[in-house]
Design a protein around this nucleic acid. Structure first.
Length: 298
DNA sequence: AAACGTCAAGTTCCG
DNA sequence: CGGAACTTGACGTTT
């Protein structure tokens, strides 16, 4: 398929959450088993919903296995839930779906602190183990930000590269970098090309921290595309806009069709997997697709 | 039952 | 140098 495939992140507003967790103070083996069981059930419901609505792009929540990379969780969840994970993987593959994950702000491979880097490595290895347990190949990616060290980018690149070298082969083979407010696209590309990993172009973050001017959206997407090769899977991009009246950087409640139409005008013909980062999740995907269909038929 | 403060984790900025 | 903001959904206690 050519053209944009639209997807959303982590939760479906109409279905139970696959991201239930516990407090460390209450954590027991039984509680973890109960939560993983519930989260996998919720994920299955979302994947079925996505299949029924022909949505093929989806981001898995990091909370699917609570405390997965934390010393408090020593359960071999990949064994205990092996069969269910494998069945979910079949559902994903048979639906020709593209799955990604996106560890949050606490996963900092470029940190100056060795303990923080070790925790980041453990977290990224967990994400790889999850995707591998689902039976998904390396085209199903783990997306991270460059992280700390904006004051001395060169030193941060070196620390990130050293952390990257500590990853399991699986995690390293799935890693993708994303531009953000602190690491504009040009700096992200520089590190990515050094490591030979692909880059997710995030339209909103780019607007907040522009670089490579005067290139427009299409040229920037094509520039990021140079970092993707065939086995990496389809190029991923992120689309969102500013929530009016909120702090700069706050994601909008719902899709902004003026901005989205402009983006689609520029890149709608390219084979992209595009994640909408909006609070109303699948609602925006459904509305955007209805709109695309209407436009095509006119 | 609804509201509200808190939660594993890091980094940066502000006072 | 200590503390809040950042982002965010869910938890868990309080009202």
């Amino acid at each position: 398929m050519t053209g944009l495939r639209l997807g959303y992140a982590c939760i479906n507003t109409q279905l139970p959450s696959p991201a239930r967790t516990a407090r460390l103070s209450n954590l027991t083996t039984e509680r973890i088993l109960e939560l993983v069981d519930a989260n996998l059930g919720a994920l299955e419901a979302i994947l079925c919903w996505n299949r029924d609505h022909e949505i093929q792009v989806f981001r898995l929540t990091s909370n699917l296995i609570p405390f997965a990379s934390h010393p408090a969780n020593t359960l071999p969840w990949w064994d205990i839930f092996g069969e269910r994970l494998s069945r979910l993987g079949s559902l994903i593959r048979s639906g020709d779906m593209r799955i990604s994950t996106h560890p949050g702000q606490y996963t900092v491979l470029s940190s100056a602190r060795a303990d923080v880097v070790a925790a980041a490595v453990a977290e990224l290895d967990y994400h790889d183990r999850l995707l591998s347990s689902l039976g998904l190949d390396a085209s199903h990616r783990i997306v991270v930000h460059v992280g700390a060290g904006v004051a001395d980018r060169s030193a941060a690149y070196d620390r990130f590269a050293a952390g990257y070298a500590q990853l399991s082969n699986g995690a390293a083979g799935r890693l993708v970098l994303e531009n953000d407010e602190r690491w504009p696209l040009d700096t992200t590309l520089e590190l990515a090309e050094r490591l030979r990993v692909p880059v997710v172009f995030d339209v909103f973050h780019h607007a907040l921290a522009p670089s490579l001017e005067p290139l427009g959206a299409r040229e920037l997407v094509l520039r990021a595309n140079e970092t993707w090769c065939r086995r990496d899977g389809r190029q991923e991009v992120h689309f969102s806009t500013q929530q009016a009246g909120k702090r700069p950087g706050a994601h909008a409640e719902t899709i902004d069709f003026d901005a989205f139409d402009r983006f689609v005008d520029e890149v709608g013909d390219l084979p992209l997997d595009c994640i909408l980062e909006v609070k109303d999740k699948e609602q925006s995907v459904i509305r955007a697709r209805a709109r695309q269909r209407r436009e095509r038929s006119e």
